[in-house]
Amino acid sequence: MKKDKIIYWVTTSLISIGSLLAVYWYFTDTKIVESYKHFGFPDYFRVQVGISKLIGAIVLMAPFFSAKVKEWAYAGFGILYISAAIIHYVVGDPTANVIVPLINLVILAISNFYFSKLNSINK
């Protein structure tokens, strides 16, 4: 049980902290603005993704959100990471740019697995 909580909190923290850092970069780093142009996306989509990451990180870390709301956050992050890997692949970015979102997806899956495991124990 203790090991499960540690794995859950480490993986969830990695996802949330990474997302919060990304939010900061989405709104301050001109390289991110240029990368969204490189992808062919309008600038408002960068803002939308940044806000979504902020909300998702808060939902995953805050204990007062219900399990159902947290599952939606997991789904949103999953879609985001899969989409990021695909777009990096499609535009011909380096392999590392394709792999990083997939690594995040694995960390997210581990977090979700332990979230579900801990939630079923608590019922």
Score class of each variant (00 low, 15 high):
Arg46Ala: 01
Asp93Pro: 10
His38Leu: 12
Ser19Lys: 01
Ala109Arg: 02
Ser83Trp: 03
Ala84Trp: 03
Ala57Arg: 02
Ser120Thr: 15
Ile103Asp: 10
Leu105Trp: 09
Leu14Thr: 14
Thr28Glu: 04
Ser19Gln: 04
Pro94His: 12
Lys31Ala: 11
His38Ser: 11
Val91Arg: 07
Leu105Met: 04
Gly18Val: 10
Ala109Ile: 08
Leu20Ile: 10
Phe41Val: 07
Ala73Tyr: 03
Tyr44Trp: 08
Gly50Ser: 08
Ala109Gly: 13
Ile121Arg: 14
Asn112Gln: 15
His88Gly: 08
Val100Phe: 12
Ile82His: 08
Tyr36Phe: 15
Leu105Gln: 04
Tyr44Ser: 00
Ala22Phe: 06
Lys68Arg: 15
Ala75Val: 15
Asp29Gly: 08
Ile107Tyr: 04
Gly92Leu: 00
Tyr26Pro: 00
Lys31Gln: 10
Phe115Lys: 01
Asn97Glu: 14
Ser19His: 06
Leu118Lys: 04
Gly50Leu: 00
Tyr26Asn: 06
Val33Cys: 00
Val23Gly: 03
Val33Trp: 00
Ala75Met: 10
Phe45Pro: 02
Leu108Tyr: 12
Gly56Ser: 13
Phe115Val: 07
Phe113Tyr: 15
Leu80Gly: 11
Thr95Val: 15
Gln48Trp: 02
Thr28Gln: 06
Val47Ser: 03
Ser19Tyr: 06
Phe41Ala: 11
Glu34Lys: 09
Phe115His: 15
Ile107Asp: 03
Phe77Cys: 09
Ser35Gln: 15
Phe64Trp: 13
Thr12Glu: 06
Tyr8Lys: 06
Val100Lys: 05
Tyr89Ile: 05
Asn112Met: 15
Asp29Ser: 13
Val90Pro: 05
Asp4Cys: 11
Glu34Arg: 07
Lys37Val: 15
Ile15Met: 07
Lys70Asn: 09
Ile17Cys: 04
Ile86Ala: 06
Ala67Leu: 10
